[in-house]
Design a protein around this nucleic acid. Structure first.
Length: 374
DNA sequence: AAGTCGGGGAG
DNA sequence: CTCCCAGACTT
């Protein structure tokens, strides 16, 4: 039995909140972001989520943990089943880990269930069977980070703390036109500061829910409904036409860098020697310049096919080309004029081509650009 | 700063 | 198929 909270609201905050309410406008004094968001929430927010009725600290906490990296639609049925079996924090603490994991089965990220159970037991030991109403005490518990702790306090107690989950990151990135992957510490610091800067002085429960509702229903990752958005007129991304490119997506793994030698042979008539690629693999069956993985391979190919000195070749500027899974740097070398050995004949896979014939051939873009540059 | 955990939804 | 989602934690 826990008498009550350990963390009283500051007198200044309380005074502002009271003033706001008496002003007959819960948003008085707050910035446009918060005011418009709250007005929108009253009409279009989600007011019937399972953990909102009743909205107890235990149910709020459980929902926040379930919703980590999990969408509302997925989590909702698990939440209903969980609270039906374990309706209170002490009942969770008294349950076996097997029972908890059983209720979690199918949700994924099972460390969340282990941490949930551990936190329940810690709360019984340290906090009289309740969650602490203190941001630092909450953050110290397993599975509760800064954003989750803030969400619990705002949702359960109406306390004034900023959250920064995926929804808020997306909304703020767009609203302020913040480029850079939000997972990067430098970007995340800026977003936290912006989240703090917009906090209203009243209605924190609704405000917190409103941000998540906006992110989940309007300001979605792809194809957001800007036309319905209460923030559209101040949204930098909207104004500058950058909605589709913000927030900056997670950078892919660095593509491996590969190298290749390219042999550019021209005969007396300025014809170019092209070779057909194998029917499988990169540039399958396209015509391209003879190519080798390294300089030794290129020299060997040259010696076997061409009358002349490999060393006479003119080393040209490297060409960078990006594929989806690796980056290729092509090192071209040019010889002109040059002739093939008598033993080498034109055939289906290796031919001299007139310049005028090139347009009709399937040639990789970087190679075409190179040989047509002459 | 990057990797790990996971099932599900969207494109 | 890939990418992302009401993140936190470990390396």
């Amino acid at each position: 039995m826990k008498p009550r909270a350990t963390k009283p609201r500051s007198s200044k905050t309380a005074a502002v909140a009271a003033a706001s309410k008496t002003a007959n406008s819960a948003n008085a004094g707050d910035d446009a972001y918060a005011s418009r968001l709250l007005a929108w929430f009253d009409v279009s927010g989600r007011h019937d989520l399972p953990w909102q009725h009743p909205r107890t600290p235990y149910r709020v906490w459980l929902s926040e943990i379930m919703l980590q990296q999990t969408q509302v639609k997925t989590a909702a049925p698990f939440f209903e089943r969980f609270v039906e079996t374990l309706p209170t924090l002490p009942s969770l603490a008294a349950a076996s880990l097997d029972t908890v994991l059983g209720l979690w089965s199918g949700l994924g990220y099972y460390a969340r269930a282990r941490n949930l159970h551990a936190t329940a037991k810690l709360c019984v030991e340290r906090h009289g069977g309740d969650l602490p109403r203190d941001i630092d005490a909450l953050t110290a518990l397993p599975g509760i980070g800064r954003s989750t702790a803030a969400a619990i306090l705002a949702q359960a107690w109406d306390d004034r703390h900023a959250i920064l989950d995926g929804n808020v990151k997306r909304v703020l990135s767009r609203y302020h036109g913040i480029a850079g992957y939000p997972g990067l510490p430098a970007i995340e610091r800026r977003l936290w500061a912006l989240a703090e800067s917009h906090l209203p002085h009243a209605r924190m429960t609704d405000y917190t829910q409103a941000q998540m509702d906006l992110g989940a229903t309007l300001c979605t990752r792809s194809d957001p409904s800007c036309i319905l958005c209460p923030l559209q007129h101040d949204c930098v991304a909207r104004i500058e036409g950058r909605v589709a490119e913000l927030p900056t997506p997670k950078p892919g793994k660095v593509a491996p860098q590969r190298h290749a030698q390219v042999l550019w042979l021209l005969d007396r008539n300025n014809r170019v020697l092209l070779q057909r690629r194998p029917p499988a693999g990169i540039w399958a069956s396209l015509w391209t310049l003879p190519q080798s993985d390294d300089e030794d391979g290129a020299a060997q190919w040259f010696a076997a096919h061409v009358n002349g000195e490999f060393g006479d070749g003119e080393e040209l500027a490297p060409i960078a080309h990006a594929f989806s899974h690796y980056k290729l740097e092509l090192q071209p070398r040019r010889w002109r004029p040059v002739a093939l050995r008598d033993s080498v004949r034109d055939n289906d896979d290796l031919r001299w081509f007139e310049r005028a014939e090139l347009a009709a051939l399937g040639i990789p873009a970087p190679i075409r650009k190179l040989i047509e540059s002459l």
